[in-house]
Every structure is written in structure tokens, then in C-alpha cells.
Design a binder for these strands. Structure first.
Lengths: 118, 118
DNA sequence: CCGTTGTACAAGTATTCAGTTGTGTTAACC
DNA sequence: GGTTAACACAACTGAATACTTGTACAACGG
């Protein structure tokens, strides 16, 4: 279950659109932070608001986008709404991105070291 | 070499910014298509322009963004510029996104089927 | 009830960014 | 050299979207 089976080539436009839309959801620092905070467990809007020191409306809005994308789930309890990670896969994505970033940084450092030496 | 070693929690802001920036690069259908086309091997701007039926300036611009992000490499030959995939990892990212998408679609279908039955 | 608390929605503003247009630059060919 | 072709860069325009402000709604406590 490693590979998506039989990915059509070239990738059809509607699928490209879906993929891009998915990446767009993760293309905002605030949403990355929200997911990162939710990695420690479910949290209410107020808790997230305080943890990220952002406005309630802003937090609620971004959570709505994540919910709409199916990346988090919402559970209402009294007046509070508790959000939780619904798709653990997002962390694999972030880890891979971090891996690529580290690789690039290492290569840059290697180039710099070589540059200093000559 | 599966996990990024010792990811700090919470993820520091500058790293969050870098991650989001990375996702933002992939958040555009045109760039996804360019990478998809380059999966078949290096290609010049003109070839990509024709394959995607887009303007030369637009293709060149998006390739510049991909180049700046370190996802593709550029090789000049005469008046032509040949671009190639520099970071194969992007395809793993896309595959994972496709996996998540498929999972969601399957769950939706399951819900629909159940809804019809009752 | 009535006020407080927690959350979501809507309108307005500001910013960001994609796509086009126009132009500059470099290399091959006559 | 002059011309053509391939690519890249900069300014402009329009659309998408993030963030703020204001408000509405629901649940709980007095």
C-alpha cells in the first residue's frame, strides 16, 4: 500500500486541480501551526486561540478551512467546539517537506564550505 | 531514514514559514503540470509551452519559481534552456496527497452507499 | 429571564499572486 | 553586422484570499 496504484499519465486536469487545492490548504503558516498544535491532542477554539495568540475569528476561519478539507474533525461539547486531527497523513507530508528542506540546506552549507576553502 | 530526526515541538515560526512556502509552490495547477511533464525527462521551455498550451512567459515564470524552490534544475544549451527534476521527493508528496484524496473519496462513496440502502 | 461565554458567519479592507503585455538578452544563422 | 529565435525579466491588471471588525447564535450560570 505504498504507491497510488496506476496513476494516469499525464495526470488529468481535474485531478491536478484537486492536488493543487490540497497543497493550497497547507500553504498558510497559521494552518500549519494549528495542525502542529493539534498533534498534541484535540483542542477547543479558545485553547488554540491562546496557544497561537491569534484572534478568535481568524482561528475559527482557518479551522473551518481545515475541516472542509477533511484534515480535522469537529466535536461540539456545550458551547465549545473541539477540533482534532482527522488525517494523520498531513504530518507525513510535512516531514517529507522538512526532509527536502534539510537536504537543500545541507547542500548549501557544503557549497559554502567549499567556497571558503578555495 | 524515514523520519526527520528530532523535529522540535512546537515547530518554530521560521520553519513553519518555510514549510508553508514550500507547499505554496505546489499549490498551483500549472506548476503541478510542469513537474508532471518533466517526469518524462528534461524539456525545454518551448516543449513545455507546447505540451501545456500556455504562453512562453507564463511557463518561464513558473519554471523560475520551481527553480528558485530547488525543485527543478536548469541547463542552457544554445538559445534553449532545458529544465529537469532536481528533487524527486515532490512526486512522493503528490502520491501521498493522491492517497489521501482517494481515501476521502472512498469514505464518501461508502457513506453514499449506506445512505441509499436505508 | 438575562448576562456571560464560546463559536461561527458576513462585510470590508489590504495584500498577495497569477496571467498578460512589453521589452531586454543571448546565441545561432545568413 | 543584421536578423531571427528562444528565453527571462519587469510593470500592469485582475482575481483570490488573509485578516479585521461587527454581529448573530447557542449554551450555561446567576
Amino acid at each position: 500500500m505504498a504507491m497510488t496504484p496506476s496513476m494516469p499519465r499525464p495526470v488529468p486536469d481535474p485531478l491536478v486541480e484537486l492536488i493543487a487545492q490540497r497543497f493550497r490548504v497547507l500553504a498558510e503558516p497559521m494552518r500549519i501551526k494549528l495542525l502542529d498544535r493539534l498533534r498534541d491532542g484535540p483542542a477547543s477554539v479558545g485553547e488554540l486561540q491562546e496557544a497561537l495568540s491569534a484572534s478568535q475569528q481568524n482561528v475559527s476561519k482557518h479551522l473551518g478551512i481545515l475541516l472542509n478539507a477533511g484534515m480535522v474533525s469537529r466535536t461540539r461539547a456545550g458551547t465549545s467546539a473541539y477540533y482534532a486531527i482527522a488525517d494523520e497523513g498531513v504530518f507525513e507530508l510535512c516531514d517529507q517537506v522538512c526532509g527536502s528542506l534539510r537536504k537543500q540546506i545541507d547542500e548549501l552549507e557544503a557549497l559554502l564550505a567549499e567556497g571558503i576553502r578555495r
